[in-house]
Design a protein around this nucleic acid. Structure first.
Lengths: 225, 225
DNA sequence: TCATCATAATGAGTTTAACTCATATATACA
DNA sequence: TGTATATATGAGTTAAACTCATTATGATGA
């Protein structure tokens, strides 16, 4: 009974692994279902017993990747208790991973634009959700412990963090400069530090202090929607 | 003679316009060449006299969009001489544009992942190049005038700027909150300021500008009640 | 004005590859 | 071991991108 289910899950994994191989080698469009079937040592029709269509298979590959990545990242974070250090570790891990697995990241783009394709069903492009939550947790814990301010909104910080790193990764891959990963991480952390550490010298001017309070108030208001 | 060429260019524009309409309506996959031909009032085969394949057509649509956008952005920037204000204007323009034309931005993803598709030819995904250069120019001019430090590298700053804004745009579109554009711009500028302004004596001026933005944001919020 | 040629447009026909489904095989259970 | 259910197969169908032989257009010059 459970061996049957196990066997099916095994097959499913084989398909995803085969698909990953073929997709990474040829890219989405040039990858053929027949190739995937060959690599998985299955008939083409069998693929459709496990996945509705080609799109569903890329999705499985991408989702699987982000799941693995989430586990690994968690390990990387567990090495320190300091919130800021954790943030840095996450940035480092994330950028390194993206540069290394850039082809998979690009595969993810397929899911973005084909969202509206097969009317419904495929909706919700939330691979990454739990991964992105790692960042949120670090920020929130840092704030709870009083180490981080909440001067900047969490959604904004998240977009800044992941957006910057994705663009940086593309730049690094494009120019083939994996050795610049560190520089980018250092710069990102330098940018974030003054907006996170509580005891930052809040300048001097009354204007600035006031502005900051205003911003905080506005954000609170906005969050009510 | 020139009227002949003019006519051909006219036709080319008609194709791009038709393609834009169809792609935006149905997305890349569900958009059919036959539909584009219909809308452009041409035979299907004629499309292939102007563009090598479907991919080349999306590319034309996307490239065309970024060209228009570049012109518009330049206008938006010309309203001020102050480098920091220009940066803010660009951020504002860019985010507003992305939220408004998000479907076109998504179409661009097609080019990213299908890069390696038709071996060569389609290489170089440099729509955006000249657009991105607007940012570079502002930064460089600011540094020349001694207003900006070069504490952070230009490539990093560029990735931070555009990466953050693209992720922010996606968040705004996903949650359907176009009214949060200002908040995001304000926060981005707050993050950039200390790393750009040389000794940051900019106080009064910048703060006033920011106050204005905040007031606008508050007014918008108030209108929602 | 018409004849000739070059350039452009057409759409029926070809090709490719995703997807289906009738048939075959394996597996569980009595 | 026999039967029923679940799973696998791959030849066949279909849809849509792309081709190409044919037709139309329009410029040029006698």
């Amino acid at each position: 009974m459970s061996t049957k289910r196990a066997k099916l899950e095994q097959r499913e994994k084989r398909i995803v692994a085969a698909a990953r191989t073929v997709f990474l080698k040829h890219g989405f469009n040039k990858a053929k279902m027949s190739q995937i079937a060959d690599v998985a040592a299955l008939a083409e029709g069998t693929l459709y017993l496990y996945y509705k269509n080609k799109n569903a298979i890329v999705k499985a590959v991408v989702v699987d990747h982000w799941r693995q990545i989430t586990d690994e990242a968690q390990d990387a974070l567990s090495k320190t208790k300091d919130s800021f250090a954790q943030l840095q570790a996450l940035a480092d891990y994330h950028l390194t991973m993206m540069v290394k697995h850039w082809r998979v990241i690009e595969l993810g783009y397929v899911l973005y634009y084909s969202r509206s394709d097969d009317a419904g069903e495929n909706a919700g492009v939330d691979f990454k959700r739990t991964y992105a939550a790692l960042f949120d947790r670090i920020i929130e814990r840092g704030q709870d412990k009083g180490h981080f301010t909440n001067e900047l909104s969490l959604p904004f910080l998240r977009d800044l963090f992941y957006g910057t790193l994705e663009y940086a990764a593309r730049t690094l891959v494009l120019h083939n400069k994996p050795e610049d990963i560190d520089t980018n991480v250092v710069q990102l952390m330098a940018v974030l530090r003054p907006h996170l550490s509580e005891n930052a010298p809040t300048d001097t001017g009354d204007d600035k202090a006031m502005l900051k309070r205003l911003e905080r108030a506005v954000r609170k208001l906005e969050r009510l929607h």
